[in-house]
Design a protein around this nucleic acid. Sequence first.
DNA 1: TAAATATTCAAGCGATTACTTGATTGCTAA
DNA 2: TTAGCAATCAAGTAATCGCTTGAATATTTA
Lengths: 219, 219
Amino acid sequence: MADVKHQLLEQFAIVAKALGHAHRLDLLDYLAQGERGVDGLARATGLTVANTSQHLQNLRRAGLITSQKRGLQVIYRLAGEDVVDLLSALRHTTERHVAEVDRIVAGYFNERDSLEPISRAELLERSQAGLVTVLDVRPVEEFQAGHIPGAVNLPLKDLEKHLQDLPKGQEVIAYCRGPYCVLSFEAVAALRDKGYSARRLVDGYPEWRASGLPIEANG
Amino acid sequence: MADVKHQLLEQFAIVAKALGHAHRLDLLDYLAQGERGVDGLARATGLTVANTSQHLQNLRRAGLITSQKRGLQVIYRLAGEDVVDLLSALRHTTERHVAEVDRIVAGYFNERDSLEPISRAELLERSQAGLVTVLDVRPVEEFQAGHIPGAVNLPLKDLEKHLQDLPKGQEVIAYCRGPYCVLSFEAVAALRDKGYSARRLVDGYPEWRASGLPIEANG
DNA sequence: TAAATATTCAAGCGATTACTTGATTGCTAA
DNA sequence: TTAGCAATCAAGTAATCGCTTGAATATTTA
């Protein structure tokens, strides 16, 4: 009986241990955008294929992701939306209690972060009222796998070329992968530079989806 | 910039790594009941004092707990309520995706768990209406550090002796430390045996407090 | 059937972690 | 000042982890 508790704690520890490495957190972050093969993840993270494979198996053993063979590839995906919640909780607690995070963020985001982010609730309301243009700056594949309803997809590198697609009168709300995805910061900076009124969505697409808000796919 | 992300992931990984050991999770579980000294924690967990001290320092380095010298002792406490949320998320994801948990729980809790637990919301409502007796079966010290308003403290070992303190007509709702605390299961079993109508509260005291419901201390 | 591709396996290494033991520090009270 | 106590430190050992390298396993295409 005290024994049961320890057996369960052992299981929780296995899951926590799986989260205990930056490379695995990075992999989960990419998987939170949508399913992917080993090779794609290796290229996204910059790890060797063998190393990526081993980390993925580690995550699978912990139950955080599942895999499925499709042709030559093995496709990995998150085991469920609650994994995103767990990652959010980890991020939240770390931000709140680890001073080092402030130091790192202050060094890179200081002026940028003064661009106050908009909440999910506010974005939903203003977007449904047609008051804002929602801009998704992630790569096309990630956008197609799922995005906020009504969002326009303009990867950062194409932004300058297609500025005319954005209605000039409306405020633009940019988002990308998550709270530390630099793309959206840069998009907002670029848009403001061109005379647009622009803000960032707080967090990113995985958090939007995990909080149960409506999404659109296969755009 | 991709570098910033990696630095931050490194910080998250440190926190996750701190959660990646059954003994540390056990320590956090006890600290979720209230602050404690090293010696008390060592006795509660059955670890040596030196080992306990090292695990605690590990947790403190990760920012999950804080310490404060008080006389001869060093008192440790959780860094914040959000740590309980993180532990809940970890438990929730593990329960949902790790088959081993089902196996362990099924082996020990099967008939017991058929005693359907009552939700926090329902307990609050029925307790305020005076319809139920709330029974806290944790040790006296933990009860005094904080408990659900109106709860009666009867540690399991004193339960049989003081049965007459419980109004016989009312349903009794028992709770203790958390979802896997066996005390409340046993209390419910014992009470039913004596002819009482009894149920368990889902989870335990730390989860009650973390969800922002009212508490009472120093009873 | 053979070649090509995506992934996994197996072995080996250096680094890190968990735990024990015994010494040390810092505080309190006699 | 000294004795006693709580906690931490330091050193050593066994086990685990992360990564690389090169071979092995499927599956598809030629």
